[in-house]
């Protein structure tokens, strides 16, 4: 055996797990394990910096470490799932609120038309009643207890809201839809929606022509919530890249979209106009708002780690930042040096 062969350490295996070099942090995976000649210890030499690492280590004496690791991982996953559900629900709720606001103008139109229709029905009913009754009986039964009399004119308002002046029915002038907003809370009569709703929508120019732009106000809370959740996902999914972390908001937005469209089934009977228009506008405005939430969440994911790093640098002294160094390492940055 030559001298050089005697100095050459004997290779008998290679590392088959992640093991960081204590010198430079290089991953020693797949590096050859050798037996050095002085003590016969199993060592591995870092190919980057040449630091020798001893591979002999204690066996894990207790199973509790692994159990705790599993427990902490399970709790973390449950918490993340809970936050994911909350995130999806908040997007769905805000999209419904947006649809509600977007439908206010159309709600006024529908409610207004329904109001005129119901007044007409009342008038016809009253006329039919008057035709079947005697002149003496017709004045009093449904009238208010105290008819208003002024200058020989007697005004009676019936319980149905029909006004009669000296026995003649006067059609009341309803408020115009633009000035009220109260028609959103009109209770739709059974059967009216099936018979008249589509015609009212078509006559008014359609759903898109009558969007109440006040729904844009929902962009303010949407921006705040979306950015905050994006920042959270960016930090919580520190193990993955930011591009992969965007998948979580994407999935949440898709689920929210499906929930919104699935829940929005317009019911024409026994409902408030507000509820009806919310259901009508949800499939129109909801996906647009959810797409906006997705974009804002992506923005949050993009800036999240930077924000977290700024907060850590602001809040913690230099020596306390070291355990949170992953915030820098994941993005290939170096820990900031203390000034």
């Amino acid at each position: 055996m030559t001298e050089s062969n005697a100095q050459e350490p004997q290779h008998f295996n290679e590392i088959r797990a992640d093991r960081a070099c204590i010198g430079c942090g290089f991953n020693l995976y797949a590096q050859p394990v050798s037996k050095e000649e002085h003590y016969g210890l199993a060592i591995c030499t870092c190919p980057e910096c040449g630091t020798v690492a001893a591979l002999q280590s204690y066996p894990v004496m207790s199973h509790w470490v692994n159990r705790f690791r599993a427990l902490i991982a399970a709790i973390w996953i449950i918490v993340l799932l809970g936050i994911f559900i909350g995130y999806t629900m908040s997007i769905t709720g805000m999209a419904q609120g947006t649809a509600n606001l977007a439908g206010e103008k159309m709600g006024d139109i529908i409610g207004h038309e329904h109001h005129i229709w119901s007044q007409e029905q009342d008038r016809l009913r009253e006329l039919a009643k008057q035709a079947g009754q005697t002149a003496a009986q017709s004045a009093t039964p449904t009238a208010t207890p105290d008819p208003l009399s002024f200058g020989g004119t007697t005004t009676i308002v019936t319980s149905n809201g029909v006004t009669t002046v000296n026995g003649t029915i006067v059609p009341t002038t309803p408020l115009s839809p633009a000035q009220s907003g109260q028609y959103n809370w009109v209770w739709l009569t059974q059967g009216w929606g099936d018979a008249h709703l589509q015609q009212v929508i078509d006559d008014s120019g359609g759903l898109l022509a009558n969007i109440d732009r006040e729904f844009l106000v929902m962009l303010i809370p949407g921006t705040i919530v979306g950015t905050l959740f994006g920042i959270f996902w960016s930090i919580a999914l520190l193990g993955s890249t930011r591009r992969k972390a965007i998948i979580v908001p994407l999935v949440a937005c898709l689920i929210a979209c499906m929930l919104l469209i699935g829940m929005s089934r317009p019911d024409y009977n026994y409902t408030y106009v507000s509820g009806l228009t919310q259901d009508l506008y949800a499939p129109v405005i909801g996906p647009v708002f959810i797409a906006y939430m997705f974009l804002i969440s992506c923005f949050g994911v993009w800036i999240g780690r930077m924000v977290a790093r700024r907060i850590v640098v602001m809040a913690l002294p230099a020596r306390s930042r070291v355990p949170l160094s992953n915030l820098w390492i994941q993005d290939g940055l170096a820990l900031p040096k203390p000034k």
Partner: peptide, 10 residues
């Protein structure tokens, strides 16, 4: 026998 002193993983 030569051994290297290392911290216990626990």
């Amino acid at each position: 026998l030569a051994t290297v002193r290392q911290r216990h993983p626990d």
